[in-house]
């Protein structure tokens, strides 16, 4: 595949996923300008590697590259997030939820939810964004984030648990203030 024909088939297969690419980069970098730079670089990389793409899942393939590019960006900007190694082995204590949390979640407005997701550690944030916003299957998430399937499942469970805790503490502060 040379020049124009490569460009044309790349644009057909990969460009439609621009929103998904930007959404992921935006949630990982938490900043519009950086997300745009990351997405542009990811698209250039994707174009160079397009020969290795065999028409499977274009979105998952692109998002994998966006994720790697975002991590490189975080590394380069010495984001402190990457130094917190997440331990997938230990299980959090299974505190059984109290009923009022469901009510609390219904009351949580978009602003609170956005803020709570941004507060999550990046490893939790990425699986949650891919699941809830891109509605990807565990298998697709595993491919994008380069994780075993079981880890995807346990991380999602822990991510949601943590999100509820953050939301709970937010509402409490709001009631008090």
């Amino acid at each position: 595949m040379e020049g124009q024909s490569k460009l044309a088939s790349f644009e057909t297969a990969v460009l439609p996923h621009l929103d998904a690419a930007y959404n992921l980069a935006r949630w990982l970098t938490r900043n519009d300008a950086d997300a745009q730079d990351v997405v542009q670089e990811a698209y250039l990389r994707a174009f160079r590697f397009f020969g290795g793409f065999h028409g499977e899942d274009g979105r998952a393939w692109l998002l994998g590259i966006v994720r790697n590019t975002s991590y490189t960006w975080m590394q380069r900007n010495r984001s402190p997030e990457l130094n917190m190694a997440l331990d997938d082995e230990t299980q959090e204590a299974e505190s059984h939820d109290l009923d009022p949390e469901a009510l609390l979640l219904q009351k949580a407005d978009a602003q609170m939810l956005r803020q709570a997701v941004e507060e999550l550690p990046v490893e939790f944030r990425e699986v949650l964004v891919l699941r809830e916003l891109d509605e990807m299957s565990y298998k697709q998430i595993a491919a994008v984030a380069d994780l075993p399937l079981g880890t995807v499942m346990s991380r999602l469970a822990r991510a949601r648990k943590r999100l509820q805790q953050i939301l709970a503490s937010q509402t409490q502060t709001e009631v008090l203030s």
Partner: peptide, 30 residues
Amino acid sequence: NQTALRSAFKNSSLYHSAPAKLEKRIRSSL
């Protein structure tokens, strides 16, 4: 709780769509 959280996500429009100029920028760099 999980279903409540799921619908909270659905109703909150947390999805960041790409700015229109980004597509232009990417097309020309490609």
